[in-house]
């Protein structure tokens, strides 16, 4: 039983990331760009272009300052569930034979589809992590609010981020105390019952904490609204970047259309 590989990477990072070289751009631009980028990735049909987008997305991640090792681990985790499916595709899609194993025909068409899926998924997610994942959570919340996302949903987002470290830390300490008492997780009832107790106790403690927080917030006059503190400043280079990327994305999509 362990927090997945990404927990260490999480640790407060979302709240303190500086966005690397991309920090200078307006968060609204980054949010729009990430959606435009994803749309373009999905719309182009050529595998070569999808590959190009994936490379661009991953490069953006590097520019945004996401450490390469973390990036690779995350991409690997993303693919984990899907890789099996992609491996199956050559055998389930009819088409010209690539090779056959024991009466099973693998088709070029299926392989092609599988590769397309991997590239699309990688490119979209890389674009998201580079452009939106590099925003501090409070800025992300405000950006969403400025695009008309309901205030209460934004408040929920901010609170969730606020609690991730708290809940994660609480879980980590309880898990460590279990390990200190020689607990080794296995495939057995003792493990499931113990982890179940851990989850139940974690829930109760979380809810108690939430109640204390509610009280404290109400004492300070909280009425469900978060103050907007981050001043957006749309600058000339934002306009230039917006126009340039819109041109490129639309151009590529148009050009790839038959």
């Amino acid at each position: 039983m362990a927090l997945g590989h990404s927990s260490a990477a999480w640790n407060g990072q979302a709240l303190s990331r500086d966005g690397g070289q991309l920090a200078a751009f307006d968060p609204r631009l980054k949010l729009m760009l990430s959606i435009g980028f994803a749309l373009a990735v999905v719309l182009v049909e050529s595998t070569a272009l999808k590959a190009l987008f994936a490379v661009v997305g991953l490069s953006l991640c590097v520019i945004a300052g996401i450490p390469r090792a973390k990036l690779l681990r995350r991409i690997a985790a993303l693919e984990g569930f899907m890789v099996l499916m992609v491996l199956l595709l050559p055998f389930t899609v009819p088409g010209p034979t690539l090779f056959s194993v024991g009466g099973l025909h693998a088709s070029w068409t299926g392989l092609h589809q599988g590769v397309d899926i991997l590239l699309t998924a990688t490119a979209v997610v890389a674009g998201l992590m580079a452009l939106v994942g590099s925003l501090p959570a409070n800025v992300l919340g405000q950006t969403l609010a400025s695009f008309g996302v309901p205030e209460r949903l934004v408040a929920l987002l901010m609170l969730t981020v606020r609690y991730l470290d708290v809940v994660g830390g609480e879980y980590r300490r309880m898990r460590n105390s279990m390990r200190a008492r020689a607990f080794v997780a296995g495939t057995n009832r003792h493990t499931w019952r113990s982890v179940g107790h851990l989850v139940g106790m974690g829930l109760l403690r979380s809810i108690d904490r939430a109640e204390r927080v509610t009280d404290a917030m109400r004492c300070r006059g909280f009425d469900g609204r978060y103050p907007i503190l981050y001043p957006f400043r749309w600058q000339l280079h934002d306009t230039v970047a917006a126009l340039a990327s819109a041109l490129v994305l639309i151009g590529v999509v148009m050009w790839s259309m038959p």
Binding site: L156, L159, T160, V161, I207, A210, T214
Partner: peptide, 12 residues
């Protein structure tokens, strides 16, 4: 604003 914190905590 009353059930917001508990929802946030559970979401986390």
């Amino acid at each position: 604003h009353r059930n917001l914190p508990v929802t946030g905590v559970l979401s986390a």
